[in-house]
Each structure stands twice: as structure tokens, then as C-alpha cells.
Amino acid sequence: MMKIGIPRGLLYYNYQTFIDSFFYELGCEIIYSENTNKTILDNGVKYCVDEACLPIKVFHGHVYSLREKSDMIFIPRIMRLYKNEFICPKFCGLPEMVKNSIPNLPPVIQDTLYADSKTVLKKWAFSIGEKITNDRRKIENAFSISLKKHKDSKKGIRDKNYKINVALSGHPYNIYDNFLNMNVIKKLNRLNVGVITEEKLNEEYINRQVLNLYKKPFWTFARNTYGFTTYLAENSLVDGIIYISSFACGIDSVVIELIKDRIGNFPFLILKIDEHTGEAGFDTRIEAFVDMIERRKGIEDNISASW
């Protein structure tokens, strides 16, 4: 049985269900990389080009850990997810970055994906499937099952029963990789803060928010994050926004400015992460932000003794 290595990084967090089920139905043995940990991060930093952002480095680490265990590694080149939109130049060149940075890699599945129509998506699935099996019906079957599973899967987080709620925004791989963001969701929950993520907001609202911009954002991440945060802020559906951004992220450097311009004085915390981020400072900032929101809402209960 062919062993397919799947790095748990970047957009795997979005398309987990599809990817898992597709290769399972094709009859492959799936080898996952471990959840991000110190070794993976260190290897990523070691092999990846220095200037790349943290998620890309971590992805390199994941691929490195799979290098000797699998017959093929799945590193799709995802060009776009929606019509006339891109993700990020680094995604477009991801297979090249990885292959030129990590020595002795097994063959890489790097088919180019423009996922803006179902036909193209299907063609892409077939070109991958054909590397694994000659049975076209099997591929067809695997494709339709996984697509259905993907559509049925529940994505996103929406906490209930918290006094304070914040919108947690940023790229999915920063929000869902608990090692990179140092368990920010748990930390917030522990401080009695509920979290809502962008998948829970209907796309219609997101697209309507974007209409106000002079130029339609051409990055999918930008459109989602901008629409999500500004909609929630303008309609006061949350008490604050926390934006997890990786250092030197080109998209965030633009989106954060656009959001700031739109929401004015609405509480907005930007948490930058990179491979040097220290947890203590991270905690302090989150706590200070929560304190600030509590004061705004007049529900602070832990007034210091010196008062």
C-alpha cells in the first residue's frame, strides 16, 4: 500500500476532512505529521528560507518529519479558492520552496489547484488519483464522498455562555495550530472569554462589508478577515477583536490597516507570533486586553488591593 505523507500545516486545517477522506477512499496508507511541536518548529526554522513567515517555516518542519516515512508527500500548490482571488504568493510557490530547501525528499504530489469551479477541482482530484490507482471509478467515488463529507463538516468555533466574547481572526493555520498560538483559545476561555471565528459568519455578510472598499481585496484571507471583523464590530456582536498575525505577513500588513481604518476605537488586539515569541509576554497582553474590555463593560471584579 502506498504511504502518503500529509503535513499538518497551512490549509490542512481548512480541508482536513476532504484530504483525509480522499486518500483513505483511494486506499492509501496515510501518514500524518505530528501536531506541531518544538522539534517540528526547530526543523522548520533550520531548513526554511529565513525570511519566510512562521506558518511556512512550520510547514517545512512537518514535511521534514515525513521525509523518511512516506512514499509520497502531499504538498498541493493551491493557487486560488475563489474566482479572481489569490491566497498568497508563498502558497503558489510552496512546492518549489519546500523541494529546494529540504534535501532528499520523496516524490511530491504538487498538482496545481485553482479551486474556483467544481470541474477544475475534479480534474485536479483525478490527476492526483491517477498517481495512486488506475481505477477511475474509484477516484470518482473517492472524490464525491470526500466532497460531501467536506460540505457536511462543521467548521469554526462559536463559544456560548460567556460574559465576554471576542472575534478571533487571522489565517486559519494560525488560529487552529495550538502550538503556534500557544493555546490562545484555551487561554481566553480560562479568562472567561468566549471566541467566535470567521467560519461562523455567513459569507453574504462578509461580501457586503467588502463593497465599501475602493478596491476589491484580491486575497481570500483578506476578504474573509476584513468582512468578518468589521461586520462584528459595526454591529457590536462582540466585545473586542483579537487578530493573530505572523510576523512579516504581507497580507496582514495590509488587512490590519484596513480594519483599523474602518472600526475606529473598537477594542482590537494584534498578537504577533514568530519563532521567538515568548509565552509570558503573550499572556500579559491577552490579560491586559481582557481587563480593558471588562472595564469598558463595567464588570471588573478583581480591583487591586491598593485602591
Partner: peptide, 14 residues
């Protein structure tokens, strides 16, 4: 600093 496309080419140039 931070130029996204050139970071990819920097990875390829070696």
C-alpha cells in the same frame, strides 16, 4: 524586507 514573491525565489536560488 517581507516581499512575498521574492521570498519564494530566494528559496529557489540556492
Amino acid at each position: 524586507m517581507g516581499c512575498m514573491p521574492e521570498i519564494v525565489s530566494k528559496a529557489i536560488l540556492p
